[in-house]
Amino acid sequence: MKRDPLGLLALPGVGYLALVFLAPLLLLLWSSVRGPEGWTLDGYVRLLGDPYYRGVIAASLQLALITTGGALLLGYPAAFALARARGGWQVVLFALIFLPLTVSIIVKSFGWGIVLRRDGILNWALLNLGLIERPVRMIFTEGALYAGMINVFLPFMVLPIFAVVRMLDPRLPDAAATLGASPWFSFRRVTLPLSLPGVVAGVSLVFSLSVAAYVTPSLLMGDRYMTMSMVMAKAFLNLRDWQLGAAMAAVLLAMALAVVVGAAALQRRLGGR
């Protein structure tokens, strides 16, 4: 006896995900601990024992944290502006923030290259304004990489925060003010805790996307800057070292999961106050 036959409607979707996502994932995890001579942790030992790979993991983590932090700093106020804007202004802001999503990530990263090149638009403008005397190296610097990464992933921070903030009752800050709460107290005790679900969703999304970034770092930094995804690609495609690639994939997955779970737990703790 089935109690809710509507539950069956989920079957095709679940089945599809199981086939194209869950099965390969399990296969990948399996191949990270399976060598020619049976079960082994050799892939993880080689990965975590090698200062080079540890450096790559640290660099990816740092890149993801800076990208997530930057996107949060820029995206949180932007989401509020978007939610509070009226009529035509909201359309304009919406377009400004989300139009970049419609441009392919490769085009976008290539665009950053054009802007930041030695003979690029930014150097040209700064030279003509007399602010610099000779072109500054921008592309292939970490600053350029962070700027590009934040640009690419900002919409993924704004959208979930906007969705939550849009539903906030505008009379709650009013009520706080009439009770004697300064704007800062009202923000800290009312607006911020109520917007946390959006922040958690945005942080989880941007962190998991940016820790696995591949295209933007390789276009803006070239080969000298290796992210975990780039190492994975090399391991699978060039070195044919499946064990190493799969181990890196498992570490990447664990890091993304840790942030998603940690952010959700943090929200439950702060939201309960």
Partner: peptide, 17 residues
């Protein structure tokens, strides 16, 4: 927030969290 005038709002505007 400096007036000390209390307000009971329509639909009350209680803090849901």
């Amino acid at each position: 927030h400096r007036r000390n005038v209390g307000v009971v709002f329509q639909n009350y505007a209680l803090f849901p969290h």
